[in-house]
């Protein structure tokens, strides 16, 4: 039931650095692409976040101040400076999903995962977070696991989908 307990301060290793280099090179080391770069970088970091040493690495490679990187990480909802999980499950709680009773979906999710919204499973596989509207109102109530959107779910279907990420 606990939250993720990643305590290592140094996440960057040679393997991760080369993955980040590839992302930076695909974006031609263009610092105006920082928002998209950080999203891609976050995806290749275990537990889907931007650790400080990674932020510093990106800043140095793009030749911009570290504060500029943190300006972006801390502003945008889809970027995290704290470790999350292997897969982030976003539960939409916007008005359209509310009219379609997302609260029942939340109960099912919390039951299957054994955690509350805002927590991560002990094995670090899943984090469950609230989200603003991601434009899947036609299939509300909806969840987004990483980049994949699912809606109009029965409990059976929900279990099947979650298990497919294990």
């Amino acid at each position: 039931m606990g939250s993720v307990t990643e305590t290592k301060f140094e996440v960057l290793n040679d393997e991760l650095a080369s993955k980040i280099d590839k992302i930076l090179s695909e974006n031609a080391y263009d610092s105006t692409k920082l928002v998209g770069i950080l999203l891609d970088v976050q995806d290749v970091v275990p537990k889907k976040y931007v650790p400080m040493d990674v932020a510093a690495y990106v800043a140095a490679k793009l030749n911009i101040p570290l504060t500029g990187v943190y300006d972006v990480i801390t502003f945008y909802a889809s970027l995290s400076e704290k470790p999350r999980a292997d897969h982030v499950i976003n539960l939409c709680k916007s008005i359209v999903c509310k009219t379609n009773n997302y609260m029942d979906l939340q109960k099912s999710l919390e039951k299957f995962l054994g955690i509350k919204v805002g927590e991560a499973t002990e094995d670090g596989k899943f984090a469950l977070e609230y989200s603003a509207c991601f434009g899947a109102c036609d299939v509300a109530p909806a969840i987004k696991i990483d980049q994949d959107v699912y809606g109009k779910l029965t409990d059976e279907k929900l279990i099947e989908i979650i298990n497919s990420y294990r």
Binding site: T32, K33, V35, G36, L38, V72, T74, F75, Y76
Partner: peptide, 24 residues
């Protein structure tokens, strides 16, 4: 260019800030 989850970036000048690699 990609956003990163900020409703305010639908506003023209905030969107531009975001394309310039900054908070929106």
């Amino acid at each position: 260019y990609s956003g990163a989850g900020a409703y305010v970036c639908g506003e023209g000048s905030a969107l531009i800030e975001s394309i310039e690699g900054k908070s929106g």
